[in-house]
Amino acid sequence: MRLRIGLVLLALLALGALLAPLAEAWLGHDPFAPDLFKRHAEASLDHPLGTDELGRDILLRLLHGARISLAVGLATALAAALLGTAIGILAAWRGGALDAVLMRLADGMLALPALPVLVVLAAADTGRIGLPRGEPLSDILRIVVILTLFGWVGVARLARAATLSVLSRDFVRAARALGASESRVLLRHVVPNVAGPVAVATALAVAGAILAESTLSFLGLGIAPPAASWGNMLSNAQDLVFSAPWAAVWPGLAILLAVAACTLVADGLRR
């Protein structure tokens, strides 16, 4: 039941993100162009969720923000899952010095204060390496790379523990005794049994990446305006909590729903 609810919520958010251009054409507004004559407009047929501090339609910006926030969450979670799973399985499979080096690297990454380091990395000038700031694609790529640098650690430790558990079981010993090759043992026995816990961790990682992107964008270090993300929408609305609370409520609710949906999916997969 929880899995279905989570998948339905994610499907609705993804559908809204995909239909953003159609909604823009239907309402006839440009979500990136200011209209100072319509600042802080309340909900109406013309603007179903009202307008923000620059007169931009909040509904359209929410839908376009869903594209960026969900893309960052999914891309980061998949990249961290692939990298972490590969490192975890390699560490458990080879063992010895390689295992010790990789796990000490993971321990070192866990010992770092994540949020301050993320802030420092996000504030770095990426123009020196050919990634201009302020463009949505380059901002997304920058955030995904930064979050993946920290996101793989938990998956790697989980994959290593699961791999060690699988390798100690009788069916793996029997397969090796019957002459199964190392690649066959890895692909037919280890990877399928590791995939379950990694899938749960990946679903949770999507929620964590969405929250991290929102935090960085709220601080002005993530997705730069006029591109819309839920984080920078909250940042722009922080001075309007009392005068125009809907400008802060809707992006906050979108983040809440996305994180709750990912958590429900992870719990459903675990069960």
Rank of each mutant, 00 (worst) to 15 (best):
L3E: 05
L7A: 14
V8P: 01
L9K: 00
L10K: 08
L10S: 10
A11Y: 04
L12I: 14
A14R: 06
A17P: 02
A20W: 14
H29E: 14
P31Y: 13
P34H: 06
K38T: 15
R39S: 12
R39F: 08
A41L: 15
E42M: 15
A43T: 14
S44M: 15
D46E: 15
P48S: 09
G50C: 10
T51A: 13
G55S: 11
L59P: 03
L60Y: 06
R61E: 01
R61H: 03
A66K: 04
A66I: 03
L70H: 05
V72I: 15
G73K: 03
T76L: 05
A77L: 07
L78N: 00
L82A: 01
G84R: 03
G88F: 06
A91V: 11
A91R: 04
G95Y: 01
G96I: 06
A97P: 01
A97V: 13
D99P: 05
A100E: 15
L102W: 11
L105A: 15
L110N: 10
A111T: 04
L115F: 09
L115M: 09
P116I: 11
L118M: 14
V120W: 12
A122P: 10
A124W: 03
T126V: 12
R128H: 08
I129L: 15
G130L: 07
G134R: 07
L137I: 11
L137A: 15
L137G: 14
I140Q: 08
I143H: 01
V144K: 02
V145K: 00
V145F: 13
L147R: 04
T148R: 09
T148E: 04
F150Y: 14
G151M: 02
V153K: 03
V153E: 01
V155R: 06
A156Q: 02
L158Q: 02
L158I: 09
A159Y: 00
A159M: 00
T163I: 01
L164P: 02
S165D: 09
D170F: 08
V172W: 09
A177T: 08
A177I: 06
L178V: 01
L178T: 05
A180W: 02
E182T: 08
S183W: 14
L186Q: 07
L187R: 14
H189G: 04
V190W: 02
P192V: 08
N193Y: 00
G196E: 06
A199L: 13
A199W: 04
A199D: 02
A199I: 00
V200F: 05
L204N: 01
L211T: 07
E213G: 12
E213I: 12
S214N: 07
L216K: 10
L221F: 08
G222H: 06
P226C: 05
A228C: 04
W230K: 01
W230S: 05
A237L: 12
Q238W: 05
V241W: 05
V241I: 13
A244E: 04
W246V: 10
A248N: 09
W250V: 11
G252V: 02
L253G: 07
A254Y: 10
L257F: 13
L257R: 07
V259I: 06
A261H: 09
T263H: 12
A266W: 03
G268C: 12
